[in-house]
Design a protein around this nucleic acid. Structure first.
Lengths: 222, 222
DNA sequence: GGTCAAGATTTTATCGATAAAAATAATATA
DNA sequence: TATATTATTTTTATCGATAAAATCTTGACC
């Protein structure tokens, strides 16, 4: 039994459980495609039905669990096809957003990229603390900052979703023995091309960066 | 009091209430930015807390309501800025998806476009039946079919979300006296350019189509 | 008159119980 | 033995009640 309110400090139980389950799904502790037994979760977190249901509902927001009326919840499955799908969407949408960003982004946009990149390379990758790793967070922030000048919150949000979806696969790849060694160099190149306003180059580097995750997983799983 | 289970035939109360509330928000029956009183909804639908909460949670999935811990739910606000944001995202993402679609779409893709277009122009626009109008549904299907060849479910889903978000504004515009008279002509042109594989032309027509909604609303509201 | 604090009220988040549906096991039948 | 049918168990969706938090009201005080 895990006492959620001690572990996570959140305004509501539902929020705490949401965060905990999200982490478990992303990390693979809850296996893809497995059925979710609500009672089991209630016992494990020592809470009643309502907050667990609420957390699950919120998770389905992010496509991390799937819900079917009268048949409960299950962890979203993973597949190579979905990763291909996600990667394609990422390339297309990030291209649009990055081009818009490069076109409209100002001085502050540039500076934010430099800053988040610096923090990223300073963040150790082997983080074993509970919850989302510091590196993942820094990584997300860096990618967000690249697109931050695109002028659309909706677009930015969607890219964030795609990032999270891909991150799940990356974590799966990691635990299957994958290696993302020289990501720093790639990130640096993407940063440089972006702030130099070389749109074509930045886009092609960024897409290559995404494709690499896909390729890794393909060798590991497919 | 509205007896949901009589009106909507759904597997669960939560699903029925979800659909009912979605409709009320899109149509403006629940005013943007207004606080949602859960007890009130419970009485109105004659159900307990749980299914209402569940419905609200699902609505926040679609950004139709916003939730804050311990402070409940409110109807998502509308603003000209958000419409600008949405329109920008729509143009960028639909461009990517449409280009990919034109490039990869096969014979079946073409045929589906022709079919959904035909159904769209045959659907009367003045539909007063409860629930989402038949025209809106046909309209959504037409736009989906244009992008259906893009090769990414994720991308397609996102375009659907953007469509729904824009549709909310369109309905607001309608009830404020707006008019979308010659949409048929625009749709026909978009269809033609797409199946003729004239990517640049199709994209520019499609974006103009989106911008028009924005312009309409601007004159009506802004 | 305006600000702040104590108390009353409303509203939210959570609980534990129950009815309805689905999944599973057990039995009978061809 | 395979299939259909019925009982049993599990699980889900929903309910009504309650504790905790937020909001509103009132009245004292500067």
């Amino acid at each position: 039994m895990t006492n959620v309110s001690e572990t996570q400090s959140s305004a509501t139980l539902a929020s705490a459980i949401f965060a905990a389950l999200r982490e478990e799904i992303l990390s693979g502790a809850l296996p893809p495609d497995s059925k979710i037994n609500i009672r089991e979760l209630c016992e494990r977190f020592d809470v009643a039905f309502s907050p667990v249901r609420e957390a699950l509902n919120r998770l389905s927001t992010q496509s991390l669990v799937h819900q079917t009326d009268r048949r409960g919840f299950k962890v979203a499955p993973v597949s190579l096809e979905e990763l291909v799908d996600i990667t394609r969407a990422r390339c297309l949408v990030n291209e649009s957003a990055l081009r818009a960003s490069i076109e409209h982004g100002g001085r502050d946009w540039e500076e934010e990229i430099v800053l988040t990149f610096h923090r990223l390379i300073r963040t150790p990758r082997d983080d074993r603390s509970p919850g989302e790793s510091a590196w993942t967070q820094a990584h997300r922030r860096f990618h967000q900052s690249l697109l931050a000048g695109c002028g659309s919150t909706w677009l930015l949000d969607y890219c964030g979703r795609l990032f999270d979806a891909a991150e799940r696969y990356r974590l799966i790849g990691l635990s299957a023995g994958g290696n993302w060694g020289d990501a720093d160099a790639e990130h640096r190149a993407i940063m440089q091309a972006s702030i130099d306003r070389k749109a074509d180059e930045a886009v092609s580097l960024l897409c290559a960066h995404f494709e690499k995750t896909k390729a890794q997983l393909r060798t590991l799983i497919g």
